[in-house]
C-alpha cells in the first residue's frame, strides 16, 4: 500500500510539475500585479466569409486568418452596412479586426502581451478556440488539481510513520493553523 502510494505521489508529481511552475509564477504575478509590457502592430489581409450571423462571419474570418482565441459576442459590432468590427482574444494576443463584407478587406490591430501575461492567462484557462492544445490544457488542469490535492494528503501519509512523526504532525498542524488564522483575517 505504502509503495503504491509513493509511486502515485511520484508520478502524479511529475505529471503536474510543469503545472506547478506555471501556477507558481502566475500566482506571484497576480499577487504583485505584474503584467509585463505589450506591443502593437497593424497588418491587413483579404478574407471571404459567408456565414449567417455577424458572429458566425466574425468566427469565419478569424479561422481564415488562422487566429487562435475567443470572439466575444459583445465585441461584434457592425459600424456601417459593410464594415464588421470584432475582437479575437487569447492570453497572448488581442486582435481588433475590421472586415469589409463587400471586398473582404481586413484590417487588424494586434496587441501582443508579455510571457508573464500569458502565464497569468492560462492560470485557470478552460479552453482556447482554434487550438488543439485548448482541450488538452483543460484536462491537464483538471487532473493536476486533483493530483495536487492527492499530493498534499499522500505526502502526510508517507511522512507520518517515520521516527520524526511528532515533529511532522506538529508541522502539519502549525501550517493549518497559520492558514486558518490568515484566512479569517481576509474572510
Amino acid at each position: 500500500m505504502r509503495k503504491w502510494i509513493l509511486d502515485l505521489h511520484l508520478y502524479l508529481g511529475l505529471l503536474c510539475a510543469p503545472y506547478l511552475v506555471v501556477y507558481g509564477v502566475s500566482a506571484i504575478a497576480f499577487n504583485h500585479d505584474i503584467k509585463g509590457g505589450s506591443s502593437t502592430s497593424q497588418w491587413s489581409a483579404v478574407v471571404v466569409a459567408e456565414g449567417g450571423t455577424d458572429l458566425e462571419r466574425a468566427e469565419e474570418v478569424r479561422d481564415a486568418l488562422g487566429l487562435v482565441g475567443w470572439t466575444p459576442e459583445r465585441s461584434v459590432i457592425r459600424t456601417d452596412d459593410a464594415l464588421l468590427r470584432f475582437r479575437v482574444q487569447n492570453p497572448g494576443r488581442d486582435y481588433l479586426i475590421e472586415w469589409d463584407d463587400a471586398t473582404g478587406s481586413t484590417e487588424v490591430d494586434e496587441t501582443r502581451s508579455s510571457w508573464i501575461a500569458i502565464l497569468r492567462g492560462i492560470h485557470g484557462m478552460r479552453d482556447l478556440e482554434g487550438s488543439v492544445l485548448g482541450p488538452v490544457w483543460y484536462v491537464y488542469t483538471e487532473v493536476s488539481s486533483w493530483a495536487l490535492a492527492f499530493a498534499a494528503l499522500s505526502g502526510i501519509y508517507l511522512w507520518l510513520p517515520r521516527r520524526s512523526a511528532a515533529l511532522g504532525t506538529a508541522t502539519v498542524v502549525a501550517g493549518a493553523v497559520v492558514l486558518a488564522v490568515l484566512s479569517i483575517g481576509v474572510w
Binding site: 488539481s145 495536487l148 498534499a152 511522512w159 508541522t171 501550517g175
Partner: peptide, 12 residues
C-alpha cells in the same frame, strides 16, 4: 510539504 499541506490542499 507538511507545513503547506493544508494550503496546497485548499488551493487545489
Amino acid at each position: 510539504g507538511l507545513a503547506l499541506a493544508a494550503a496546497v490542499f485548499f488551493y487545489a
